[in-house]
Every structure is written in structure tokens, then in C-alpha cells.
């Protein structure tokens, strides 16, 4: 755990021990006439785990996807506001979403290894399709990424086996390895363990805690215990607004907002 920041600070301006990775200011996202995210301002701590919690439809996935411009895949989406990644405006004119996404990787709720590729090919797909051909470097990245994703020991003898032959939890860790292989600065996770059994979930959570040494992690979760166990900071979203943001311990034990307290104690949501 990082040093406890000043609990009196608002959603922005917390003292992060390793600095700030992402800053969002006045972030709103519309889908057609529907405004699903309303003027959210938040700072995301570098090399720490930030959990996004809130009931279904509160805009937490939309927030996550705005952080690497994935929401743009929906042609009806429109975004206002400002997001900076280590100071760089990721929505600036001339900035390609493709480049943003190489810096801000993503892992999805449903594990989605490419079915036509082997385990090794899945890990390197992001590198290969972006032009990396060096076999030695690719081999290094395969081992390194699978090690980081805590999957290496289980698959090192069958790297050429089909990715879809892995179990659900292994597939999800493979997807994490695939995202890590392109060496992003930030890793976004959209309910990465919600489709997994408790043991596989445990492994993913251990992995998240382990990864924050090197990466900034933002995780959307429905699972309150998961947020409490594995995150350093927690943001509570409700109906498209950021209700409260602070150190996880404070959000779960001493929230300053009534709605946060009601949600984390299971009174609604």
C-alpha cells in the first residue's frame, strides 16, 4: 500500500506516491441523446490499482473505455472534456486512437484469445501486427509477458497449442499477457474476473496486486470484496456521476457520501 494520502482532498488532488498517470477533467460521454457520463474529473495514481465501482449502468465501463478511446468504436459516441496520460492530451488533434491504445491496454470481461492462434501467437499478436519481426525479441516477450501474467509455468511446454484449449482462467491470464506484451503504461480491466470461478478469480487478483509494481491499473468491478482486497483507490460512480473517490480503505470504512455508504454496505445496487 502506498502512504495514506490526505483523506480531506477531493476527487482530484490526492497525493499519489508514484505520481499521476491519468487526469480526466470535465469528462462527459454521450451515446446519441443519452448522456452516460457527466462531467467526471478524477486523477488516476501511477503504479497503483484504482477500482471503479457502482451499480450497472452507472457509466463505469464507459469511463474506462474513454481512457483508451475504445468508446469511439461505437459510432454514436461523443466525448467532451480532457484526458491526459502522463501529461499528453490523448484526444489532441492528430493523436491516433491506435497509438493511445498501445499506451493504454485493456482486458475485457469475457476472455477473448484469438481462436485461430496458438498461445504464443496470441501473446505476440499485438507486436507482430504492428510490424515487429525479430524472432528473438518475440520469443523474449512471450516468456516475459507470460511470466508477468503468472501463466508461464502452466503453458511453457505447449506454447504452440491452441489458445482456446486453455481453461477459462488461463485464457483470461493469456489475455492479460497479450495486453502486457505491447508494453503499455496503463492497463484497463473491465470486470476481468466476473466470469471466473473463485480460484481463478483469486489468481487474477493476486496478479493485479503483483502487476502494480510496474503498471498503472484501473479495474471496473461489481465485486465489492474484490475492490476492497486488491485496490489502493476506489471511485464510486452512480448514474454517470463520480460520487466519491479516495483511498480504498476510506471508501469502504468511512465514506463521506451517504450514497457511497449505502452502496458499499449493500443497501442498493
Amino acid at each position: 500500500m502506498p502512504a495514506t494520502p490526505n483523506p480531506a482532498t477531493a476527487a482530484t488532488g490526492l497525493n499519489f506516491p508514484a505520481g499521476t498517470a491519468l487526469t480526466a477533467r470535465g469528462l462527459s460521454v454521450h451515446f446519441g441523446r443519452n448522456k452516460v457520463l457527466k462531467e467526471v474529473s478524477i486523477d488516476i495514481a501511477a503504479k497503483a490499482v484504482t477500482a471503479i465501482i457502482g451499480p450497472s449502468g452507472c457509466g463505469k465501463s464507459t469511463f474506462l473505455r474513454a481512457l483508451n478511446r475504445m468508446h469511439e468504436l461505437n459510432p454514436d459516441a461523443r466525448m467532451e472534456g480532457d484526458i491526459r496520460l502522463f501529461g499528453d492530451d490523448i484526444y489532441a488533434r492528430g493523436v491516433e486512437p491506435v497509438i493511445v491504445r498501445r499506451r493504454v491496454g485493456m482486458v475485457f470481461q469475457k476472455s477473448n484469445p484469438f481462436p485461430t492462434m496458438s498461445i504464443a501467437e496470441n501473446v505476440t499478436v499485438g507486436l507482430r501486427l504492428n510490424g515487429l519481426r525479430d524472432k528473438k525479441l518475440l520469443a523474449e516477450r512471450i516468456e516475459q509477458s507470460l511470466q508477468m501474467a503468472a501463466l508461464w509455468d502452466e503453458v511453457k511446454d505447449r506454447l504452440n497449442a491452441p489458445a482456446i484449449s486453455l481453461s477459462g482462467g488461463q485464457q483470461q491470464r493469456l489475455c492479460i499477457a497479450r495486453a502486457l506484451a505491447v508494453q503499455p503504461e496503463v492497463l484497463l480491466m473491465d470486470e476481468p474476473a466476473s466470469a471466473l470461478d473463485p480460484l481463478a478469480t483469486q489468481k487474477i487478483e493476486d496478479l493485479i496486486v503483483h502487476l502494480k509494481k510496474d503498471y498503472t491499473i484501473v479495474i471496473v468491478t461489481h465485486n465489492m470484496q474484490q475492490a476492497a482486497r486488491s485496490s489502493d483507490y476506489t471511485a464510486f460512480f452512480y448514474l454517470g456521476e463520480l460520487i466519491e473517490f479516495g483511498p480504498t480503505a476510506k471508501i469502504f470504512t468511512n465514506p463521506s457520501q451517504k450514497r457511497t455508504e449505502d452502496y458499499v454496505t449493500g443497501r442498493f445496487g
Partner: peptide
Amino acid sequence: PGGYREAAMALGIAKWKTTVQIVIRTAL
């Protein structure tokens, strides 16, 4: 499944490469 397109796009793979190498390959 749309998840394959999303996964590829989230890796910073350009749309046309995603279409050819992921989508078409899966449906070949």
C-alpha cells in the same frame, strides 16, 4: 464475436489489420 475485434483494437492494431488478420482469418 465483437470481442475479438475489440481485443485487437485495444492492442493498438489498426482497423484494416484487425479486419484481415483477426476477423477474416477467424471466419475464413
